[in-house]
Simulated assay, not measured.
Amino acid sequence: MPLDDDHRTIDGDVYIFPRYLARSTAAGVPALAPLLDLGWDLEHDDLGNAYVNAPDRRVRLGYLPEGEDDGLWRINAYKAHHELFNAPAWGVCFNNDTPTEFVRAFTTELAAAYKQGPDAYLATPTPADKDHDPFLAVTSLIDRGWEFDQPEPGVFAIRSPDRLAALEFTAGPLDPEAELTSRTARWHLWAGNSIDRPAWYATASTDTPVALLTAVTQCVSDPAPLPRWQEETFSYAKGAQLTPILPPQPPVPTPLDVQRAAASRRPAALPAPSVPRWSTTSRPALPGPRR
């Protein structure tokens, strides 16, 4: 499906800070674009849900505005063709209020991993492997001032400085089916004033590749605000700051611009009068009439 460039970008009239309180744009195209640009197949059901399938049918994304719950985005990867009804190797869910930019960060990294092959998009997190160490997913959070916490036994969390966002990691064995269908997953990222009623949340199962998780945590912790249309957005969690986006100002002229402008206003110089020049090779003047 060709996508117009106007639908790939996200704009607005206010900036939201911190960005993890921005909520969704209610537009799916910007997050679908990285996969559709690779030639992934796009299908729709009768309800208006969209499904994007990798050419090898081993990765499937569902965009489910008419789904059974608030899991708007569900992405699963399989070690074999997914239509053979094999269990997913990993699954990720973003609910319907998750900022679209975070989903796009995930799909952009997924597209890059898919181009590398199954060893990349099916890479299992391994603490002993420096390239796939799960700790890499939280490095960007730590570098940006997020702090460790332990809300309950067996659960480790890292929270934003304002305590309005957190990434939780659950240790120990988990039910594989519950990881794919509920918030009881290995990774649980959320924002808002309460984990029970978050502004938005995202989950990732045990074997989700670390590179895909890292792309999301880097985007979530980015200090830059996000643009939104104030009149078209959902209410924001307490603590969000809205700043009007001012129209671009004309550039300040440089000294060279001033000189050129002044030169363009000067009157054109008059041509110098012509003066006859004589030389030894000039012909003598003709004699005038005698008196």
Rank of each mutant, 00 (worst) to 15 (best):
L3M: 11
D4V: 15
V14K: 00
Y15V: 06
A22G: 02
R23F: 12
T25P: 03
L42G: 05
N49C: 06
A50K: 11
P55S: 10
R58P: 09
R60H: 09
L61P: 03
Y63T: 07
P65S: 07
E66N: 15
G71Y: 14
K79R: 14
H81N: 15
E83H: 12
E83D: 15
P88Y: 11
V92C: 06
D97T: 03
T98Q: 03
T98V: 05
T98R: 00
P99S: 08
E101A: 12
A105Q: 03
A120S: 15
A120E: 06
L122P: 09
T126F: 12
P127K: 09
A137H: 02
V138Y: 01
V138R: 01
L141C: 04
R144E: 04
E147F: 08
D149W: 05
Q150M: 10
G154S: 07
G172S: 01
P176I: 04
A178V: 06
E179K: 04
R186P: 00
H188P: 04
H188I: 01
N193P: 06
W200P: 00
A202C: 03
T208Y: 03
A211T: 13
L213A: 06
L213W: 08
P223N: 06
P223M: 09
P227Y: 07
R228W: 04
R228Q: 10
E231M: 12
E231F: 08
E232N: 11
E232S: 08
Y236E: 07
K238D: 14
I245S: 02
L246G: 10
P247H: 07
P255K: 03
D257W: 04
R260S: 04
R266Y: 08
P271N: 07
P271S: 11
S274G: 13
P276H: 00
R277S: 14
S279Y: 02
T280C: 11
L286R: 00
G288N: 01
P289A: 04
P289C: 02
